[in-house]
C-alpha cells in the first residue's frame, strides 16, 4: 500500500506511543525485579550490592507458606464451585425461559458492580448476624460470589457460539438429552469451560479486599499475608515475593495462551 510522508509520521508516532504505554505497564515489574535483589533492607536505586537473601526469606516466612496453601485451597474450591454453578446457570439462561430468570441473572452478576469490600463486609455481618462460624468455607463462599460472573460470562459466550444444529443432529440420531449433553455439548464447550475455570482460579487466587474482611489468622490467604507483611516490615522480601508471583502467573498465562489463544478466551479476536 502506498504511504505518504504523513502516513510514515503517523506510523512512527504510533510506535513511540505504543512503546511508552507498554513501558508504563511493565515498569513497576522491572523495578520490583531489580529491588528484589537489593542487598540492603533499605530501598535504593541503583542497589549498592546484590543478594538473593530476600528470596530465601520469602520462602522461609511461615505466613507466606500458610497463605499459599490457603489460597490454593480456596482458589481450587472457589473456582470449582463457581464453574459448576456458573456453567449450569449459563446453560439454562441460554436455553430456557423460566420464572425470575432475569432477576436471578441480575443478582448473580451484581458482584460486578457491588464493590468487593461491600461483599466482604456483607458476608462478615451475615455470618455475625446468623451466628455462623467463620472458617475457610466462608472465604470460599466470598470467592465464589466474586468470580461467578466471570465464569457465567465465559461459558455463556461459548454457548452462544455453539450452533444448535450439533445438538439437534445428535438428538435426531437418537441421542437422549443426557447422552447429547455428555457426548456433544460438553466436549464442544470444553475450551470455554477450561478457560472459565482458569480465569476464575486466578481471580480467586488474587482476591484481596473481600478476603481481608472474612479471614482469620488461620485462614489468611496469600494476598492478605503479603499485605500484612508490608504493614510490618519495609525490607524487599515482598519484592522477591512479587517477582515469584509475577513469574508464576505469566507462566500460567503463557500456557493458556499456547493452548487456547487468549484472543479467543477474551473475545477480542
Amino acid at each position: 500500500m502506498y504511504k505518504s510522508f504523513s502516513d510514515h509520521l503517523l506510523d512512527w508516532a504510533g510506535r513511540i506511543l505504543l512503546t511508552l504505554i507498554l513501558g508504563f505497564l511493565v515498569l513497576p515489574f522491572i523495578v520490583v525485579f531489580i529491588a528484589s535483589f537489593n542487598e540492603s533492607a533499605i530501598l535504593s536505586f541503583p542497589p549498592q550490592s546484590w543478594s538473593t537473601r530476600w528470596y530465601v526469606n520469602a520462602f522461609e516466612y511461615r505466613d507466606f507458606g500458610n497463605g499459599l496453601r490457603n489460597s490454593l485451597r480456596v482458589a481450587a474450591f472457589g473456582a470449582g464451585i463457581a464453574l459448576v454453578a456458573g456453567a449450569g446457570f449459563a446453560y439454562v439462561f441460554n436455553r430456557y425461559d423460566f420464572a425470575f430468570k432475569n432477576t436471578l441473572n441480575g443478582i448473580l452478576l451484581s458482584p460486578l458492580i457491588i464493590p468487593n469490600f461491600t461483599i466482604g463486609l456483607g458476608v462478615l455481618v451475615l455470618t455475625a448476624a446468623a451466628s455462623m462460624p467463620r472458617n475457610v468455607w466462608t472465604v470460599v463462599a466470598v470467592h465464589v460470589i466474586i468470580v461467578l460472573p466471570f465464569v457465567v460470562r465465559s461459558v455463556y459466550v461459548s454457548l452462544q457460539n455453539l450452533e444448535r444444529a450439533y445438538e439437534q443432529a445428535a438428538e435426531s440420531l437418537g441421542g437422549r438429552p443426557l447422552h447429547v449433553l455428555l457426548t456433544i455439548t460438553l466436549p464442544l464447550l470444553l475450551p470455554g469451560l477450561v478457560a472459565g475455570a482458569i480465569f476464575a482460579a486466578i481471580l480467586s487466587f488474587n482476591e484481596f479486599t473481600a478476603s481481608l474482611y472474612v479471614v482469620s489468622q488461620r485462614t489468611e490467604t496469600l494476598p492478605v499475608a503479603m499485605y500484612n507483611y508490608v504493614r510490618e516490615y519495609a525490607d524487599p522480601t515482598l519484592a522477591a515475593m512479587s517477582v515469584l508471583y509475577v513469574a508464576a502467573v505469566a507462566a500460567l498465562l503463557l500456557l493458556v495462551h499456547k493452548i487456547f489463544r487468549l484472543e479467543k478466551v477474551l473475545n477480542v479476536d
Binding site: 505504543l18 507498554l22 505497564l25 511493565v26 515498569l27 513497576p28 515489574f29 523495578v31 520490583v32 531489580i34 529491588a35 533499605i42 530501598l43 535504593s44 536505586f45 486466578i202 481471580l203 487466587f205 488474587n206 482476591e207 484481596f208 479486599t209 494476598p223 503479603m226 499485605y227 508490608v230 515482598l238 519484592a239 515475593m241 512479587s242 508471583y245 509475577v246 502467573v249 505469566a250 500460567l252 498465562l253 503463557l254 495462551h257 487468549l262 484472543e263 477474551l266 477480542v268
Partner: peptide, 29 residues
C-alpha cells in the same frame, strides 16, 4: 502486546500496588 497488557490483570492488587510503592516512594525508583 496481548501478554504485556493482560498479565497485570492476573496479578491482583497487592503485587501491583507494592510495585508502585517502590516506583513512587521518596527513595523509590
Amino acid at each position: 502486546i496481548l501478554l504485556i497488557s493482560l498479565t497485570p490483570l492476573f496479578l491482583g492488587e497487592i503485587v501491583r500496588t507494592y510495585s508502585w510503592m517502590i516506583v513512587l516512594g521518596n527513595r523509590g525508583f
